[in-house]
């Protein structure tokens, strides 16, 4: 019986370790971490970041909602989805959503050089940051790429952003994904 108990305990520990490798749960606070400033001034301006800031937190983004795409420039799914990401970014920049939702892509394990290549190759205009040493990737549970995290920013200074929605893997279409994001923002 004691051997059975020991086995069960060991399995429970292993199970907890396995479940820790997952994106944050909806309703949880977004990990408090600093991200490298976007690779272009236009990107920093879009996010409403102070001029010359080398890093920022999601809470610093001047919008009530932020969609973060975790990607990798060498991930074939991210390459294939790049044109749709640009379409999504442009759609979010339209009248209905402007100022309400901002989009940011973060390259997991990528350098600024690699992100620049990716931006140029796929003619992307959204702000892009880098997580060169996988710090954010690890805080986010080391998900596969692409992954998406929608957060609601705190209305007050010093508060934490809240995770509203997470998705590991590609979206079906920019239009359907935007509809999904809108529905989560209403909740």
């Amino acid at each position: 019986m004691s051997r059975l108990l020991a086995c069960t305990t060991l399995l429970a520990v292993l199970l907890l370790a396995a479940s820790a490798l997952a994106l944050p749960k909806e309703g949880q606070p977004f990990p408090d971490t600093r991200l490298a400033a976007p690779d272009t001034q236009a990107g920093a301006d879009y996010l409403g970041l102070p001029k010359g800031a080398a890093s920022f937190r999601i809470q610093d983004v001047a919008a009530p909602y932020v969609l973060i795409q975790l990607f990798n420039v060498y991930c074939m799914h991210c390459m294939a989805e790049a044109p749709d990401m640009e379409r999504l970014f442009r759609a979010v920049g339209g009248k209905e959503m402007a100022g309400k939702l901002k989009i940011l892509a973060v390259g997991m394990g990528n350098t600024p050089f690699e992100v620049k290549l990716f931006r140029e190759k796929y003619a992307l205009t959204m702000p892009m940051s880098t997580d060169k040493d996988y710090v954010m990737h690890s805080l986010m549970g080391s998900p596969g790429t692409p992954s998406y995290v929608l957060v609601r920013n705190p209305g007050v200074k010093g508060g934490a952003a809240t995770v509203l929605f997470v998705q590991e893997g590609r979206f079906e279409s920019p239009e359907k994904f935007l509809d999904l994001l809108k529905s989560r923002m209403k909740e």
Binding site: L4, T8, L11, A18, L21, S142, P143
Partner: peptide
């Protein structure tokens, strides 16, 4: 107790499978 162990093993397998999926 055997049933508890079986359920735990199934959940563990599910976790491991999910982790493998992350590697594509």
């Amino acid at each position: 107790p055997g049933a508890v162990l079986s359920v735990m093993m199934l959940l563990l397998l599910a976790g491991v499978c999910a982790a493998q999926t992350e590697l594509g």
